[in-house]
Write a protein that binds this DNA or RNA. Structure first.
Lengths: 187, 187
DNA sequence: ATAAAAAAGAACAATATGTTCGTTATCAAA
DNA sequence: TTTGATAACGAACATATTGTTCTTTTTTAT
């Protein structure tokens, strides 16, 4: 691929991320993005159809490899390796988030965090579902599998939201411990 | 209060709700709202500072009494009246939602449901917190109370989101049953 | 070196925003 | 029922954003 394309694409992503750290998504204009990225108006629209399109692309880039990395983890460990195992996939995810690659946490902490977390939850749903079909789980009370999957990924996302609002006063390991305590009883 | 004020306020709310059923919040313009409500531009800005302000006012109106009603319920029953009791506050909430007063479910089903559910969750947090301070709960594994409160209200909100996406294939009573099954083990 | 592709830059119509004015209609209270 | 207050109207306004179209310049891959 042409280096110029990659360069502007990166410039736009960076500018967008910078702006997201300053103000909410809805208040960011295309004008600001291209000013910050220092690219022409035409160039922006050659890459992305709309601002929403840009957001989607950014999410795919951000959550893409964090999820695939987690998927590798489940292939070796299972959803939770063991009831008393030291780490679960969720701990892995939290650590990955905190490592701050591409400044994901910065983005998730911004005013538009919910926006990102919806994308994140979609990915988590796939991840969790994957686990359920592979493992033949006992279903203790005729709870629909859909419900359980949604409960797990939903709770995780809400936990991350809480974690960030709370200025990350807890370590990924602590959170993992709490999360397993509230999730494992129902598996 | 002047009847005229009440009348335009209602007209704007109704117009806004109608539009929300058709398109996402971000794509609705003030222009459309005043056209639909059939009020002057000046009038709109006399009532609400911005579109965001309107959304906030609508949420307060919608969730205000649904929560106070639930609060009454907790005063008599407790968070869950009893492990085997037929109804919990959450069932009450779900039924209330489904009764379709002010067409809440219609709004929650729209493209901008997350927007509303964030407001809803804030109210739920207060509700849940209220319960925790009144009842002296056993805390089985040193999980922070904040975490538990957030887990409960967060899970509930995510469940409603799932319920709506799923076209409400389940009754409030079924959902309540599932929800208690995943929440009660940790209380 | 050259043809293809990408970015810049300027200009465009269309639309949305929030404000200001003077005018008209409606209300509540005497 | 009159009257003073106030809410709504409507038109106009400057300002800003959007998405598109054009031509010109720069950069790339081969």
């Amino acid at each position: 691929m042409d280096r110029r394309q990659q360069k502007t694409r990166t410039a736009i992503f960076t500018a967008f991320s910078t702006l997201l750290a300053q103000k909410s998504y809805s208040k960011i204009t295309v004008q600001e993005i291209i000013d910050t990225a220092n690219v022409g108006r035409t160039t922006f629209y050659a890459h992305f159809e709309t601002k929403d399109d840009l957001l989607k692309a950014l999410c795919e880039e951000l959550f893409g490899h964090i999820i695939t990395s987690a998927l590798d983890c489940t292939h070796t460990h299972g959803l939770y390796s063991d009831r008393n195992a030291p780490e679960s996939v969720f701990c892995h995810l939290l650590q990955h988030l905190q490592e701050n690659e591409n400044n994901i946490l910065g983005l998730l902490s911004c005013e538009s965090s919910e926006l990102f977390l919806r994308y994140f939850k979609d990915s988590l749903n796939d991840l969790t579902q994957n686990q359920f079909v592979n493992q033949n789980r006992r279903n203790n009370q005729n709870i629909p599998q859909d419900f359980l999957i949604n409960h797990i990924s939903g709770s995780f996302v809400e936990m991350v939201l809480w974690w960030l609002k709370d200025k990350k006063k807890h370590t990924p390991e602590e959170l993992d411990c709490y999360f397993r305590a509230v999730i494992e009883p129902i598996l």
